[in-house]
């Protein structure tokens, strides 16, 4: 595959950047995320997560099932802050 392929569409991270970090010893999703912002954007890793895990698995010989993904944190999809504020205020008093 072309190494300039974008793996993370939220933060424009390429396959080359991922492979370079793996070769430097950053072999968990969490470490790669923190150095590249992969999985930190609006998709929260829903698009790129499996692709990164596949690269780690291929490079380290582990099975994808044995690798850990980042913690799933709220919200599930992006929500405008003022909508949350308005809803919260409605339920007060």
């Amino acid at each position: 595959m072309d190494e300039n392929t974008i793996i993370c569409r939220c933060s424009d991270v390429t396959l080359k950047e991922i492979r370079e970090l793996i070769s430097q010893g950053y072999v968990t999703y969490d470490e790669i995320k923190r150095l590249t912002r992969i999985g930190m954007g609006p998709c929260q890793g829903k698009t790129c997560g499996q692709l990164v895990l596949r690269e780690i698995a291929a490079a380290t010989g582990q099975s994808i099932a044995d690798l850990s993904f980042h913690n799933i944190r709220p919200p599930v999809v992006g929500v405008k802050l003022h909508l949350i504020a308005e809803e919260a205020e409605k339920h007060e008093d």
Binding site: G41, P42, Q44, G78, K80, L81, H82, I84, A85, E86
Partner: peptide, 18 residues
């Protein structure tokens, strides 16, 4: 969300992703 909407309302228009 309530604090940001009160102090810096323009930021309240943005989506929280995590």
């Amino acid at each position: 969300a309530k604090t940001i909407d009160k102090v810096l309302p323009a930021i309240g228009k943005l989506r929280v992703v995590r």
